[in-house]
């Protein structure tokens, strides 16, 4: 990879200042960015590490749910969220492999918004709030398509606040080589309805399957989605699966996630 200046601020204010240089890029766990830089798909002049900022780390119960610092690695979420939000902890514990989970972070994952990443499904299905150094963004407004988010230049994700559903589960169908989701579905049942978020399947990145949500809001059972069909028009087509295959997986995995959530 091309060389760059490396800085590691210890406060959010310092990080924001360092990122105001147009050629600077934020670095979290680096499990996507560093491989991209090795391939010279990215070549920032300065890398600003966010992993030394204490206030961006940790898992705690807060107003209205579970607050997770953006620089918290997956392994820590898997361990510390387990008692509060088991489905989210299980999702974190299934990303990549153990060494990747030691470094990769929730903030890095949702800032990158890879169309096959796991976390965007949890954030969207939970109706979480993305807290940045500037504002709070509802999950429904945050994800704006493949590798695209509401984040502006120099804006950093500080924390993600998850409302805790009554029941939830995430089921992913692994792409066996990369262990990214070929398709993954997160189902979350709240008092006022059910939210279903799908990753890995769509050319538009993570999305809500509203038809499934409607059916599950009237009857939270795997059978409720059996008669539905998912439109393959916007689904990803690659050597791992056709659009029709992914569309079918959306329905099948939703059913499995509901069955799992119901225990």
């Amino acid at each position: 990879m091309h060389n760059f200046d490396f800085v590691k601020p210890s406060t959010i204010a310092e990080a924001v200042k360092a990122l105001s240089d147009g050629d600077a890029q934020a670095l979290s766990g680096g499990q996507t960015l560093l491989p991209s830089m090795k391939q010279r798909l990215a070549a920032p002049g300065t890398l600003v590490s966010l992993t030394g900022i204490a206030e961006m780390k940790g898992v705690c119960k807060g107003d209205g749910g579970l607050h997770i610092g953006a620089a918290t690695p997956h392994a820590v979420v898997a361990r510390e969220a387990a008692a509060h939000y088991p489905a989210l902890a299980a999702l974190a514990g299934g990303i990549g492999d153990p060494a990747v989970r030691s470094r990769g972070t929730i903030g890095g994952s949702i800032a990158n918004n890879d169309p096959a990443a796991c976390y965007p499904a949890a954030v969207l299905a939970s109706g979480a709030t993305v807290v940045t150094n500037k504002r709070q963004i509802a999950a429904d407004d945050y994800f704006q398509g493949m590798f695209t988010t509401a984040l502006e230049e120099g804006e950093i994700v500080i924390e993600v606040r998850f409302p805790i559903p009554q029941k939830a589960a995430y089921v992913k169908f692994n792409q066996p080589a990369s262990r990214f989701a070929l398709t993954g579905v997160f189902v979350a049942k709240f008092g006022d309805g059910v939210r279903v978020a799908v990753t890995g399947a769509s050319n538009n990145g993570v999305f809500r399957w509203t038809e499934g949500e409607k059916a599950l809001s009237s009857s939270f059972s795997a059978d409720a989605v059996k008669g539905l069909s998912v439109d393959p028009a916007e689904m990803i087509s690659d050597l791992h699966g056709t659009p029709e295959y992914r569309a079918h997986l959306v329905k099948v995995l939703t059913g499995r996630a509901v069955a799992q959530a119901n225990g």
Binding site: F6, L27, P98, V100
Partner: peptide
């Protein structure tokens, strides 16, 4: 913590 040292910057 186990990490893949090829995907961690030394200065980090």
């Amino acid at each position: 913590q186990a990490v893949k040292s090829c995907t961690v910057l030394a200065h980090d």
